[in-house]
Simulated scan of single mutants.
Amino acid sequence: MMKAIVLSGGFATRLRPISYALPKLLFPVAGKPMIYWTLDLLQESGVDQVVLAVNYLADSLRAVVGQKYKGIRINYSLEDEPLGTGGPIKLAARMLKPKETFIAMNGDIITDIDLNKMIRNHKRSKAVVTDALHEVRDPSRFGVVKLDPAGRIQRFVEKPTLREAPSRLVNAGIYLIEPTMLNMIPSGRKVSLEREIFPILAKRGRLFGFPFKGQWFDIGNLADYRKANFALLRGHAPKRDLQRRGTRFKQPVFLGEQTKTETAATVGPNALVGRNCVIRRGAHVVDSILFDRVTIGERSIVSGAIIASSVLVGKNVRIEPGTIISPNVKISDGIRIGKDAIIHPYKEITANVRPRANVM
């Protein structure tokens, strides 16, 4: 059986203000927390032990995920301070104690990669590290590689300009690692795999790439988050019976467990609604993502918004596209929230919010 380390820390600054109150890996994606997409992939690939490398809001993540998931034993490796991409692997390996090839991956990616095929390629190549690679249109946000005909990574360029990029194959955030690589990572300080370790392995001819096609979402910001949710809604969200008397559903729609919709409500198209939500009489939710325990009041309209958990929206409220509403917000009756407004956690909104406002 395989072992894995999942990089689960980071402050998720580009997912603020929602991430002030909720760890990134607990953001719901098409019906389940982001981390469960990763754990499901690992479980289906034969992994039986995972160490989650955590720091920011670690207790919240531990409270939800626990010590066991679908037969996978889960441990937690806590960083006292951020250690980059290499440091957490070194630290977590003390708990994992790998004696053979192990997996390390970012927790904020969703993919259908064939890990077993990647493992076979890794063993055949005798690589120290194999890096999963995915082709993208714009590689400037990622680590970009140049491969030789044998699949060795010749160059690894971190976040190049389009002109400087040696290819459109980018680091997909999934690695197969031999335990000997751990000796290359200094202890007790921040270490970048991409800038400090991979270039050395590339010079030695021991860093290989595994290009793959198919699904791959790197959820780095709220635009990525929205894109992943709606793509997965169309293809992967759980199918549930949505025939409810008096409610109009326009597919695609996902409703979480124990969510209620009332007469004359309209949900969809492109609506993901979490668990224990309430959509009141005459309300309309379209092109939006609602986390758990959200209530939308009578005749309120929510269009193109992301609304985090435990938000109460009153009657006759209008929420316009691009709005981000953080957890534990209360919006009074009759309020209009303009396009691209951002509302921070624990706010009570009693007056209209202008477009692009940042309510702190």
Rank of each mutant, 00 (worst) to 15 (best):
M1A: 11
M1K: 07
A4M: 04
L15R: 08
R16V: 06
F27E: 02
P28T: 01
M34A: 04
D40A: 02
E44R: 14
S45H: 00
G46R: 02
V50H: 08
D59H: 11
R62P: 04
R62F: 01
R62W: 00
A63C: 11
G66N: 10
Q67E: 15
Y69A: 00
Y69R: 05
Y69S: 06
Y69D: 03
D80G: 13
G84V: 08
T85L: 09
G86S: 13
K90D: 04
A92M: 06
A93D: 03
M95N: 07
P98N: 00
N106W: 06
N106C: 10
N106L: 14
D108T: 10
D112V: 02
R124S: 15
T130L: 12
A132I: 04
H134N: 02
E135P: 05
D138M: 07
S140V: 06
R141L: 14
F142V: 13
F142E: 07
G143H: 13
V144N: 12
L147G: 08
D148Q: 07
G151Y: 13
Q154T: 14
E164K: 10
G173C: 02
Y175Q: 11
M181I: 04
M184G: 06
G188M: 03
K190G: 00
E194L: 11
R195K: 14
E196P: 11
E196N: 03
I200E: 11
A202I: 04
F210T: 07
P211E: 05
F212N: 03
F212E: 04
G214M: 03
Q215D: 00
I219M: 01
L222W: 04
A228G: 07
F230S: 05
L232Y: 04
L232F: 04
R234K: 15
G235W: 09
R240L: 12
R240T: 14
R244D: 08
R244P: 00
G246D: 01
F249T: 14
P252N: 09
T259D: 08
T261L: 09
E262Y: 14
A265D: 01
R275G: 04
R275I: 10
N276Q: 12
R280F: 05
A283M: 10
H284G: 09
V285T: 01
S288Q: 06
L290M: 05
D292P: 07
R293H: 12
G297L: 05
E298R: 10
S300W: 00
S303V: 15
S303N: 15
G304C: 05
A305S: 13
A305C: 06
I306P: 04
S309W: 00
S310R: 13
S310G: 00
V313M: 08
N316L: 14
E320F: 14
I325R: 08
I331Q: 08
I343W: 10
P345C: 09
A357P: 05
N358C: 14
